[in-house]
Nucleic acid binder design. Structure first.
Lengths: 245, 245
DNA sequence: GACTTTTAAATGTCTGACAAATGAAAATTA
DNA sequence: TAATTTTCATTTGTCAGACATTTAAAAGTC
């Protein structure tokens, strides 16, 4: 593990990269303790502050965790799906908000990936998934539900559908995409009429899931995607009309 | 933007979180300059080193970039799909290697998401995508290609297929999944016979893409997924047999 | 006006110190 | 002896101050 003094990058960035590479290619294994900050400083021939900045970079990516006190130090972290998922949501949310991704493009991506889950969900769904989904549908049908609560319930519903696929990789990727869309979805005002239509489709999806009918799930998801895009377009059109005034 | 002195977490982590939140909910906009390290230190009533550690955490997530010299400082970064993509690959790769994700599960996820791209790819593909894919198929048919080069070409082929969907959100999610699987794929030794079969399927996919035939793409992808899983299972079976000796 | 020099501001790095947490060893006590 | 308490060494967390380096703008020079 060496750093190149001619590299233009900051020392702390170089050191972080060296350690990161060592973790990725297996030279440092999970739960292994890194040398102490003082030792690393000596190894890389830099000050302790520089080493610390490098370690903070790695901690921000959940690659290491640190513990104080005797026997403490920096340890290679076993990155969990949950941690990765949290980071994914942060990144995806910012990507969408900073890069002017259109509502349609985000919608297409989200529902396309959800369709990809359908065959697996139809096969692996269990009573818990179905119960969660029906409970969320029930919540959605309550009158006087705020738009915010409605969206949260919508996310919970779709999250259950994704989790039904029983594939952590799909769940991780998908849940990120679904939750990252929430800020965009929150722009929409869901009328009683549109909620009714969405609940209808949610019910269709849940029924099809119970019947292990993957094709019907996919069909309803396409309808839901189309309908959601219509709602989104209406909001955008209304905004443009308002800005022209 | 305040920090809570009673919080158990490190000061630098708290400060990083405070700034991160300000970025996410739009209080700090893209390209806006943060106060200088000295000013932040005063604002949060901590030392400059602590502020610096917080800023390094944010830099590791590409949330800010720093510039030295007069007029320099830390700026809110417009996170690009490319940067996010790089981070996604790092995280996904580690997730797969650290959490004992089975080859089948990863394969299912990857090909399912790729299938999700098929309808969009069939619609939006252009000559460039087709040319890239045919070029990779040609490379794959060269005798004496190393397993490593074969896998790299395989990734390039699938990447072109994903990019043909012309949806940056899908590309970002998918390219991560495809590349994260590469270490797993590298475990497989691709015989001439199996390469032949895969090239056949790649050709089918490319032909179907050219013909805007989404259904055929999906069918070939399913075949490819099944075949890849068979290859993976053989490797695992061979390994187990070897370890029993 | 074009070029060079100076200067101020900002991050990057280093040094040295102390605080706080933590586990292990040593000392004390029942 | 066994249990408890105390001490101690180790390690990260934080602070303060200094200097190096980079950079753009201001000042000076021809």
């Amino acid at each position: 593990m060496k750093i190149n003094p001619n590299d233009a990058a900051d020392l702390s960035a170089q050191i972080a990269e060296a350690i990161r590479d060592a973790i990725i290619n297996g030279q440092l294994i999970v739960d292994e303790r890194l040398p102490s900050e003082a030792e690393l400083a000596e190894q890389f021939d830099v000050s302790r502050s520089t080493v610390r900045e490098a370690l903070k970079r790695l901690a921000a990516q959940s690659l290491i965790r640190t513990q104080r006190g005797s026997g403490g130090g920096a340890f290679v972290n076993r990155i969990s799906f949950e941690e990765a998922h949290g980071q994914q949501i942060t990144t995806s949310t910012l990507l969408l908000s900073m890069n002017a991704v259109s509502f349609d493009v985000a919608c297409d991506a989200r529902f396309a990936m959800e369709q990809a889950c359908a065959p697996f969900a139809a096969e692996h769904r269990n009573a818990d998934h179905l119960a969660t989904m029906r409970a969320e549908i029930h919540r959605q049908s309550q009158p006087g539900l705020s738009d915010e609560s409605w969206c949260a319930s919508d996310v919970a519903f779709h999250r259950a559908l994704v989790d039904a696929a029983d594939n952590p990789v799909l769940s991780y990727q998908l849940a990120g995409a679904v939750e990252a869309m929430q800020p965009l979805m929150n722009m929409i005002t869901f009328t009683a009429r549109s909620r009714e239509r969405i609940i209808e489709l949610h019910t269709d999806i849940t029924d099809a899931l119970e019947a292990h009918d993957s094709a019907s799930i996919e069909k309803s998801l396409i309808d839901l995607s189309t309908y959601t895009k219509t709602l989104g377009d209406d909001v955008i059109a209304a905004k443009q009309k308002a800005s022209q005034t």
